[in-house]
């Protein structure tokens, strides 16, 4: 009974079906434990958390240099910037926009630098549904390879104040 003290001699090894279930559950836990390191070696989607310390002002400066070096168009008043294949791209999150918009090429790999200038923001790439956290003071680097073309929308999915739902960005892939 769970409400009264256990009978003497209650300390004993599991038997029968209970023992079998514990064994099965433990095996399943080990399978799940192995999947994550395995995916780091064989899988293509990982979050390594590569990051560097950066002041918001310094990050904005790098972003401005990036914008000046490769603006190729304009989306709703926000410059569309194309980094060189294999190159660095900068994306600054602030209340309530993603700056700048990016133009990428399918099959090329980029180092995408994400940082916030004010609060926490959430980088949510739709309709792919890829999500990463963006913090002020941290240059979060994603090594990313677009494998599909079209217009992709960056939605902010970390609460950042009253205009949060209108914080939209764009990535165009050709």
């Amino acid at each position: 009974m769970s409400l009264t003290v256990p009978e003497k001699g209650w300390y004993k090894a599991p038997e029968g079906a209970e023992k079998l279930w514990i064994g099965l559950a433990l095996v399943w836990c080990m399978v799940m434990s192995v999947m994550m390191p395995y995916w780091h070696f064989r899988g293509k989607q990982n979050s390594r958390g590569e990051a560097y310390s950066v002041e918001p002002a310094a990050f904005m400066e790098r972003t401005m240099t990036f914008v000046e070096s490769g603006t190729v168009g304009d989306w709703n008043g926000i410059p569309i910037v194309e980094p060189p294949p294999g190159g660095e791209a900068y994306l600054a999150a602030r209340m309530w926009s993603w700056y700048p918009a990016l133009k990428l090429r399918k099959g090329e790999t980029y180092r995408l630098h994400l940082s916030a200038l004010d609060l926490n923001h959430g980088f949510s790439l739709q309709p792919l549904n890829m999500n990463f956290q963006v913090l002020p003071g941290y240059d979060h680097v994603l090594t990313i390879t677009p494998t599909s073309t079209g217009e992709f929308t960056i939605v902010c999915n970390e609460f950042c104040g009253i205009g949060h739902d209108k914080m939209i960005g764009k990535i165009f892939v050709e």
Partner: peptide, 15 residues
């Protein structure tokens, strides 16, 4: 357990 799997969280975080 599934959403808390390190890599799978990429397609779940903050949704």
């Amino acid at each position: 357990v599934t959403l808390g799997t390190q890599q799978i969280n990429i397609i779940a975080h903050n949704t």
